[in-house]
Amino acid sequence: MKHLIQLYVQQFKTTLAMMFQYRASLVIWTIGQVLEPLVYLIVWLVVAKSSGGSVGSYTTTDFAAYFIVLMLVNQVTYTWIMYEFEHRVREGVLSVALLKPVHPIHSDIADNISSKIITLPIMITIAIIFVFAFHASVAPPLWAILVFIPVLLLAFSVRFVLEWTLAQAAFWTTRVGAINQSYFVAFLFLSGQIAPLTLLPHPVQILSLLLPFRWLISFPVELLLGRLTMVETLIGLGAQFGWLIVSIILLRIVWRAGVKVYTAVGA
């Protein structure tokens, strides 16, 4: 345990140094993270205004709150491992990580958390500006705010393990682009990033209940917006735990099989 903590501290220092080295990338990345929810927020505001101030159960202020909270939840749970793993396998960089006496997932977790710690203040500042610019308002009950923290952490864990597992596809094919994009499109619709899920067609809503995506994004968002009852929240927590267990089992199976087929170039 002690050496794991040391590893995390060391990774934090490395990530911090790298992020200051590549400040421009940080700005570019922030623009992308902010612009997408902003565009959908504006589109839905226009729709709501043209149809008398609300769509379904969402008024203009609700839409603003929904997409601003969504931006933050997405920021906290976001990973980039699926884009990076292919490079590691193709270039053989993974060999170095395999020689180390700890599972390579640890340095990825540490790297992810470190860069989030650095970028979160920027995102929160932007969120606050948006709250005033778009007159967002939320009034969640106290219990919802308290439950939000563990729900958010669970969402982060599930998304991380799931995407880390999916990234292993690179062991079997060098064309992960198509896989990544399919995942991304499913995620966009079924996690509530295009629109609050209650506005989607009924079959899509049912599908979203069965898949992990909504429990990673729209569930935490709706919780903080005070739109969920206690029972719904408990169901959501159950789904999150269920997917955490499933994804950890999948990770172990896939990783073991993947390392076996991995042959580094030049080795």
Binding site: V43, W44, V46, V47, S50, S51, I194, L199, L200
Partner: peptide, 15 residues
């Protein structure tokens, strides 16, 4: 197109 379809179920004029 999916995104457009969702939005245009709630309005028939966007901006």
């Amino acid at each position: 197109l999916g995104g457009l379809a969702i939005i245009f179920t709630y309005t028939n004029l966007l901006g």
